[in-house]
C-alpha cells in the first residue's frame, strides 16, 4: 500500500493554491520540515521566514489577513499551538481572521525528537478557542483536499499534519468542513478516528471481523465542527462508541465526541489516546507499540470492553 505523509500534501497543495496572488506563506525556520518550502521554491516573493519566533509569525499573519491577504503559517504542532497560543487567541480567533495554521510533526509519531517536540494537547488547545476550526486529515489525499478547501473557508483554521508516512485510505477529490466519512459499515460498535489512527482503526476492524465482530469505522477529520449527524446515526445503531487519536484523551476528538453524545445520545463511549502523559524518544513504531496505537491493541481493547 502506498505511503505518504500528510505534511507533504501541505507543501504540494500550497503550491497549487498559490496561483491566487493573495496567498502568502509564513514559517518559523522549519519550512523544510513542515514542507512550506515547496511554496517558497515556486513563489519566493510570497514566502516569509519569520525565524524562530512562532508568536510573531502568527501575529504577522493576522496583520496580513487584516490587509487583504490569505496567510498560511506553519511550524511544529507543539510550537504553533503552544508557544503561539496567545496570538492565536487574541489576534486570529478574537478577530475571526481567515488565517490557516498548520501544525506539522503532531502527536508522538515525530518519534526520536522526544517528548519536548511531541504535541499531545494541540487539538485541545485549538478546539477550545471560539471561531477556530480543527481538521486532522487521515492521509495525504485528504490533507491535500483539506488545504485546497481552506481557500473557500472563512475564519481561522487549524490543520494538524504528521511527519510519518502513512497508507492512503481516502480518495475523495474534495473536502467539506464538518463532514465525516464512514470507511466501513458495521453494527456491533462504532469506531471514530482521525489522522493516522483512522488507518489503524480500519485494520483493527479487519482483525475483529475474524472473530465475527462487525464494527463501523468512521474517519472524522473535522474535529471542530464535528459531523454530528454521521456520529449520531452510527452510535444510535451500534450503541457503543470507541474513539482513537494520536493525542491526549483530554480535550481531543474523543472529548468532542463525548461532549456531543452525552447531551444527545448517551451511549457507552471509550476513548483511546495518550492517557494524560507525555511522549518520549523512540521510533514511531516502538512508540505506537508502547502507547497502544496498534491494530492488535485496538482490537483487543474493543473486544475486552464489549465482551470482556
Amino acid at each position: 500500500m502506498e505511503k505518504k505523509a500528510t505534511r507533504e500534501a501541505y507543501g504540494k497543495a500550497l503550491v497549487e493554491i498559490g496561483k491566487d496572488k493573495r496567498v502568502v506563506v509564513l514559517d518559523a525556520d522549519l519550512s523544510g520540515s513542515t514542507k512550506s518550502a515547496e511554496f517558497k521554491k515556486t513563489y519566493p516573493d510570497r514566502f516569509f521566514n519569520i525565524g524562530i519566533a512562532e508568536s510573531n509569525m502568527v501575529d504577522i499573519a493576522a496583520g496580513m489577513a487584516l490587509s487583504g491577504l490569505k496567510p498560511y503559517a506553519s511550524s511544529f504542532a507543539v510550537f504553533i499551538t503552544g508557544r503561539a497560543f496567545e496570538p492565536v487567541r487574541q489576534s486570529i480567533c478574537y478577530q475571526n481572521l481567515h488565517v490557516v495554521l498548520c501544525g506539522s510533526h503532531s502527536g508522538i509519531s515525530v518519534g526520536e525528537d522526544g517528548g519536548s517536540h511531541q504535541s499531545v494537547a494541540d487539538i485541545a488547545l485549538m478546539r477550545s478557542l471560539p471561531n477556530m476550526k480543527v481538521v486532522v486529515p487521515a492521509d495525504y489525499n485528504e490533507a491535500f483536499a483539506v488545504v485546497s478547501a481552506t481557500m473557500d473557508m472563512e475564519g481561522p483554521v487549524y490543520i494538524r499534519t504528521s511527519r510519518a508516512k502513512s497508507p492512503l485510505i481516502t480518495n475523495k477529490p474534495s473536502f467539506e468542513i464538518g463532514k465525516a466519512e464512514v470507511l466501513k459499515k458495521g453494527s456491533d460498535a462504532t469506531l471514530i478516528a482521525c489522522g493516522m489512527m483512522s488507518y489503524i482503526a480500519l485494520e483493527a476492524a479487519k482483525l475483529l471481523k475474524k472473530d465475527n465482530i462487525n464494527v463501523e469505522v468512521i474517519n472524522s477529520p473535522s474535529v471542530k465542527p464535528l459531523d454530528e449527524d454521521t456520529i449520531y446515526n452510527s452510535a444510535k445503531k451500534t450503541q457503543r462508541v470507541f474513539t482513537f487519536e494520536e493525542h491526549s484523551i483530554i480535550g481531543g476528538l474523543g472529548s468532542a465526541v463525548c461532549e456531543f453524545l452525552s447531551e444527545n445520545l448517551p451511549v457507552y463511549t471509550i476513548k483511546t489516546g495518550l492517557e494524560d502523559v507525555f511522549g518520549e524518544s523512540g521510533t514511531k513504531d516502538d512508540l505506537f507499540c508502547k502507547f497502544g496505537f496498534t491494530k492488535e491493541s485496538f482490537a483487543k481493547k474493543i473486544k475486552d470492553k464489549l465482551y470482556g
Partner: peptide, 25 residues
C-alpha cells in the same frame, strides 16, 4: 480600529504584518 489589541505585544507584531502586506500588495 485597525486591529484588536489589549494583550500587550500583539499589536506591534500585527502592525509588522500590515507593513509587510503593503509590500506584497
Amino acid at each position: 480600529i485597525e486591529a484588536s489589541t489589549g494583550s500587550l505585544g500583539n499589536g506591534i507584531s500585527q502592525a509588522v504584518g500590515m507593513s509587510l502586506a503593503a509590500k506584497v500588495l
